[in-house]
Design a protein around this nucleic acid. Structure first.
Lengths: 165, 165
DNA sequence: CGGCATCCTGTATGATACTG
DNA sequence: CAGTATCATACAGGATGCCG
């Protein structure tokens, strides 16, 4: 991997301030957030489903659902089945669904390098073939960490980075 | 997304015990681990580079490097430049390099949904085109979260899951 | 320079109990 | 069922200082 522009190695100015990885981490860095998201992808929608299936306490589940809704990756919707009382359901927003590669990249890594006894497999509904998470360029080439360059344009020498954490 | 086999919705038995996502999280769930890994991908190799560029204290850097070496994603190698004293360097192992899609999936998400002022771009060295992290099946189809099925085979009803955390 | 030990604070999370 | 409130614990991580 290569670096270009403002990201070029310098010890005095951490790139983190502008770093999109750090920004995403503010949303999903906790274990509970990842597990709640996992269950959202696995089809959970009601409070108790999240708590029971992610094996989290009610308090943690509540806090995490609130945070994820606030971050815009989950959406809280009222719904009402005929004859039933009013309920809420939590659903992934488009931004939330776009976390799928991040979640499944973690799944894929353990399946390869620290596999559980019965590794869950991902298959494409359209053709039944195994699914992988991978880096690929616009031209369709598979890209490894040796074949990619990270480029940033900004004035990284400024004293007051706009965004930390 | 669909679930099949032992992963099918059940409230009494959390899938987490066997979950590869959780297993990977034990390696990279902390912010500092992710930042150290980021710097490894960005080319850092010496202790002080990690500490300075990830903006972590020496103690945290030390602990994280140790953990990541123990987890097998980094490797500590002695090396010696001619006329210099003996040093160590930390390098990504193949397992570590295989975390690239996970790291860059986080980068990509913030670039799309919570972009920093100067979003770093990924480009393929071979052809200069932008790089994305995406789900794709063996047949080459792009896969969305609606087109994928997660299947697990194991005896998930057992009382004593082999692997937690 | 590279790294570890100590102390301290903040937070993630569990346990338990309570409310609508 | 869907939470909220309170208390207790464990751990992440900063600050400081020491050591080879």
């Amino acid at each position: 991997m290569k670096l270009e522009g403002a990201l070029a190695l310098r010890d005095d100015q951490p790139v983190g301030s502008y770093c999109p990885i750090e920004r995403t981490l503010t949303v999903v860095s906790t274990r509970s957030a990842m597990l709640v998201l996992r269950e959202a992808f696995y089809g959970a929608s009601r409070f108790e489903e999240f708590a029971a299936r992610a094996d989290l306490t009610d308090a943690t589940t509540s806090a995490r659902l609130r945070d994820l809704v606030r971050a815009g990756v989950l959406e809280k919707r009222p719904y009402q089945e005929p004859g039933q009382r009013r309920r809420h359901e939590y659903a992934l927003t488009p931004a939330g669904e776009d976390l799928m590669p991040a979640l499944f990249a973690l799944l894929q890594w353990a399946n390869r390098h620290d596999p559980p006894p019965y590794p869950p497999q991902l298959t494409h509904d359209g053709c039944g073939r195994p699914v992988t998470i991978e880096a690929r360029c616009d031209a369709g080439h598979h890209v490894t960490s040796d074949d990619v360059t990270v480029t940033a344009a900004g004035p990284f020498g400024l004293d007051d980075p706009v965004a930390s954490t």
